[in-house]
């Protein structure tokens, strides 16, 4: 068995045996869907004419997937470092790519399950989401989103040494980003300069791409711009992650 397969297996077992984290990973975005769905039931977003729910569903989905990717890897790396698991791996000939690669597959699977569950629930009559015709595009878009945010999580996981600091740093980045990228409220209702600020945030690109694919907002160019933006951030985060990666707490 390869190092990559073994780490993926161990990661998978650790994931499914931690029922609490598992539950909240999948329940959290659904909670937002329910809350926003109930608050804005029946309302439409001005101009676009889309139902608020279909707008919100796309935003919450991209935020939920991004959030899980960031938190999952950041917590794991921090925990592995403080439990000396990274040190154990460091002393074996397994390449760093096997470590990150195994977490990547797990993050992709988590993202896929999250999305299926989320879209499934949003399509229930209570919420009434009707996926747009471009929905198959969600697959590459969300996979790219997971990649970008996983690499951001690797950076956070390399700096943070405690669960508290992972939560603090990740929330500090992800929550404002969710609001400023239009995950929860339409960007159109924000001042113009704030809309520009969102252009330097990776979540904005994931949002735009998912919004078109799932809810049919904007046009196909939103998907391609979104993917290009995510790709640029992925390359930048990847380069920083490789530079800042630490096997042990101190040397």
């Amino acid at each position: 068995m390869s190092a990559y397969a073994a780490l993926t297996g161990a990661g998978y077992r650790a994931q499914v045996r931690d029922k609490t984290t598992l539950f909240f990973t999948f329940a959290f975005p659904l909670l937002f869907l329910v809350v926003f769905g109930l608050i804005f039931k029946g309302q439409a977003v001005e101009e676009s004419g889309l139902s608020y729910l279909s707008y919100t569903a796309a935003g919450v989905l991209s935020w939920g997937v991004a959030n899980a990717a960031v938190f999952g890897i950041a917590f794991t790396l921090m925990q592995w470092r403080s439990d000396d698991i990274l040190r154990l791996i460091r002393m074996s000939p397994a390449p760093l790519s096997a470590v990150i690669g195994s977490r990547y597959v797990i993050a992709l699977v988590v993202g896929a399950v999250q999305s299926l569950l989320f879209v499934g629930v949003a399509m229930l009559p209570v919420f009434g989401l009707e996926p747009a015709s471009g929905w198959p595009l969600l697959v590459p878009v969300l996979a790219l989103g997971v990649t970008t945010f996983l690499l951001l999580g690797v950076i956070i996981g390399s700096f943070a040494n405690t669960p508290e600091s992972v939560a603090a740093v990740a929330n500090f980045l992800m929550l404002p980003m969710a609001f400023l990228s239009g995950s929860f409220f339409p960007l159109d209702s924000m001042p113009g300069w704030l809309q520009k600020v969102s252009l330097v945030m990776p979540l904005r690109y994931l949002n735009d791409a998912v919004s078109h694919a799932l809810a049919g907002r904007g046009d196909a160019s939103d998907v391609w711009t979104g993917c290009a933006g995510l790709l640029v951030f992925a390359v930048v985060f990847g380069a920083v992650a490789v530079k800042t990666f630490r096997w042990t707490r101190s040397s």
């Binding site: 190092a3 397969a5 077992r13 650790a14 045996r17 925990q79 698991i85 154990l88 074996s92």
Partner: peptide
């Protein structure tokens, strides 16, 4: 490795090598 049995842990370590 967290939440593994003794055998699963050692199997993972063996695979790393």
């Amino acid at each position: 490795f967290v939440r593994q049995t003794a055998h699963e842990h050692l199997r993972t370590v063996a695979a790393l090598y």
